[in-house]
Amino acid sequence: MSRIAILGARGRMGAAFARQWAQQHDVTALARPELDLSDLAALERLVKSLDYDILVNAAASTNVDRCETERDEATTVNATAVGLLARLAAERDARLIHISTDYVFDGEKDTPYVESDEARPLGHYGQTKLDGERLALAASPRHVVARVSWVFGPDKPSFVDMIVDRALKNPRVEAIADKISSPTSAEDSAEWLAAFFDPATPGGLYHACNSGPCTWQEYGQHALDCALQTGAPIQARTVEPIPLASMSAFVAPRPRQTALHTGKLTSVLGRPPRSWQDAVADFIQRKFR
């Protein structure tokens, strides 16, 4: 049994981690108001008061557009605080598992990114997450950085819920058809990352998402198809395509193609992560059960 402290326990990933890992481990799950990554002194006091073997940081400033305008806050939360957590974990000979993002890439590559590809963020959010990665990995070779993308799960609504809920009420729905990435099941990620509770599992940088790339449109269409199979009264049967360039409200730049290759994670797990299609189908079936 590991002693695990989870920061960001009300997010999609943190909540899934807390629920699943508590079945076999001693879990302390923290979120606001007791957790504030922008208050570094309070954060240090809090973390020093905890008893843990594994410190998991699933908290972040993730509003991409807000990060572009509130740069100091984003830097503190996504980078400086991560360096502090990494140092505190290393000082007590514990492992940090830190959640990062596909937005560290510029999207210019036509095939899925591997961990050794150069990271070139387009916006401030991606830059702060990359800085956090580097601080985490520099503090200890045992620390783990897990990059995820397009996360969905039962604990907090995501794109999957949004597209299905809209299709239940409207005869027409749409999604971006020229932006590609790899969906990540929060519940699947809890299973994958548990492999790093074993001290013998190598630390470092990992891409931790479900297998296979897709566009937002394909992601949404599969969710609707799965909902229809459950008998849900879906009005919109097709997700209409729209271009990324049409999203005039976006402040921050978005990378075009950030699918993540999971071969390194596969080598640790001994099997590849299941396909995003299977993970979405399972999620939708339980949503309408």
Rank of each mutant, 00 (worst) to 15 (best):
P33F: 05
P202D: 13
R142W: 02
A259P: 06
A74I: 01
R32L: 04
L224V: 07
T215Q: 07
D53M: 00
P157T: 10
D198C: 02
L40F: 05
T258V: 15
G204H: 04
K48T: 11
G83W: 00
A94G: 08
P213C: 13
E218C: 09
D188P: 03
R237P: 04
V151I: 15
A236C: 10
D36M: 05
I97D: 00
S248P: 03
S61N: 12
D278E: 15
A249M: 14
S2F: 01
M162S: 15
V239F: 01
S49H: 11
S49L: 09
E68M: 05
A81D: 08
A249N: 14
V104M: 05
L88Q: 00
L40C: 08
A190T: 02
D72S: 15
Q24S: 15
H222W: 10
C209Y: 03
S267Y: 02
A60H: 00
F159A: 14
P121L: 10
A31F: 09
D278G: 08
S189K: 04
A86N: 02
L135G: 00
W150F: 09
E70C: 08
P255E: 09
I234K: 11
S158L: 11
E118D: 13
S2D: 07
D26S: 14
D106K: 13
L122N: 08
I234G: 08
D161M: 10
D102E: 15
S158R: 04
A90Q: 04
C67L: 06
R12A: 13
I234E: 10
T111A: 14
L85D: 01
S189N: 14
N57M: 01
L260K: 07
P183H: 09
D161L: 12
A60D: 06
A279E: 14
T262M: 13
G220S: 05
L193S: 04
T262E: 11
V64H: 04
T75S: 13
V104Y: 00
A89G: 01
E240R: 12
S116L: 12
A60Q: 01
D65C: 07
W192H: 14
P241S: 11
Q277V: 11
A81N: 05
I99M: 13
